[in-house]
Simulated scan of single mutants.
Amino acid sequence: MKILLVIFISGLLFFSYGEDDFEKYLNEFQQYKKEEIEAYEKYYKELMKEFEEYKRIVYEEFERYKKEISRYWKEPEVSTKKKWVEYSEDYKIKKAVDFEKGEIRVEIIDKKKPSKKEIAKLLMDLITEDTKKAFERDKLSRRIEKKIVKKAKHIKTAKLKRKPILMGVILDKKKPEPKNLSKAVVSLLKSGRLVEKPSKVKGEKVYAFKIKLPPKRFMRKAKEYKPVVLKFSDRYKLDHALVYAIIHTESSFNPLARSPVPAYGLMQIVPSTAGKDATKIIYGKPVLLSPSYLYDEEKNIMIGTTYIYLLYYKYLKDIKNPLSRLYCTIAAYNTGAGNVARAFTGTTNIKRAIKIINRMSPSEVYDTLIKKLPYDETKNYLKKVTKRIMLYKEI
Rank of each mutant, 00 (worst) to 15 (best):
I282A: 07
T306D: 09
L310A: 07
L310Q: 15
A331I: 03
S292L: 02
D318G: 01
P260H: 14
A332R: 05
A332K: 07
K276Y: 15
P322Y: 13
E297P: 15
Y293C: 04
A331G: 03
I319W: 05
I281C: 04
V340P: 02
Y313S: 14
L316W: 11
K317V: 12
L288Q: 04
K276T: 08
V261P: 00
P322F: 13
L310H: 06
L316C: 11
V261E: 12
N339Q: 08
D277F: 10
I303P: 00
C328Y: 02
V270F: 07
A331T: 07
Y283H: 13
I303H: 00
N300C: 06
P291A: 05
T305C: 04
P271I: 05
L316S: 11
K285S: 09
K320E: 15
N334L: 01
P260V: 10
K280S: 13
D296V: 05
T273H: 12
Y333I: 09
Y295R: 06
Y307G: 08
R342F: 12
L326V: 10
E298R: 12
A263G: 13
Y307A: 08
L310S: 02
V340N: 03
Y309M: 12
D318N: 15
S292A: 02
N300R: 01
G338L: 10
P271A: 08
K276Q: 11
Y315I: 07
G304W: 03
T335M: 04
I330N: 03
Y309N: 15
T279D: 09
D296A: 10
R342Q: 13
L294I: 03
T335H: 00
P271T: 11
P260E: 14
I269R: 05
K320S: 12
P271M: 10
A343W: 00
